[in-house]
């Protein structure tokens, strides 16, 4: 009894279960006719699976996808530059708002100063903006 066409096809496609595959395999190994039919079947499958159309290759999009140390360095430099310019702008804005420092003394120090014959009046406030220019 030879293997049916459908069973040979399932065997060739490896879609039958293990028991079926083993039985068919053993028969094919011993039967010249079935072995020849299997070979023809596999040839047909190879033809169906073997279309190789002409394909247009594209060049490597090198610039777009190459990991670039240079680009990473430029990015970092840009971040530093933005940070520097931003910091400079903020500092110049801060300098336009003068901070007046008035020395403050504790209560006991104030009394000692007041009692001293050479009482010293507190120094006038210091305009930091004027002194920094």
């Amino acid at each position: 009894m030879h293997v049916t066409e459908d069973d040979l096809l399932k065997f060739a496609l490896e879609t039958c279960d293990d028991a079926e595959a083993q039985a068919i395999g053993e028969h094919v190994a011993a039967c010249d006719e079935c072995r020849e039919r299997l070979a023809l079947l596999r040839r047909d499958i190879a033809i169906i699976a073997g279309v190789q159309p002409e394909a247009e290759r594209i060049p490597l999009p090198f610039r777009s996808y190459r990991p670039s140390v240079w680009r990473a360095a430029m990015r970092m430099a840009a971040v530093l530059l933005v940070g520097f310019v931003g910091g400079l702008a903020v500092s110049r804005w801060v300098c336009r708002c003068p901070v007046t420092v008035v020395p403050q003394y504790g209560a006991s120090a104030a009394r000692a100063i007041a009692a001293s014959p050479q009482a010293v009046t507190p120094a006038p406030p210091v305009d930091l903006a004027a002194t920094s220019q």
Partner: peptide
């Protein structure tokens, strides 16, 4: 123009 032979054309 894409397939290489009449056989491939038929397979497609």
């Amino acid at each position: 123009s894409m397939v290489r032979s009449e056989r491939e054309w038929l397979v497609v």
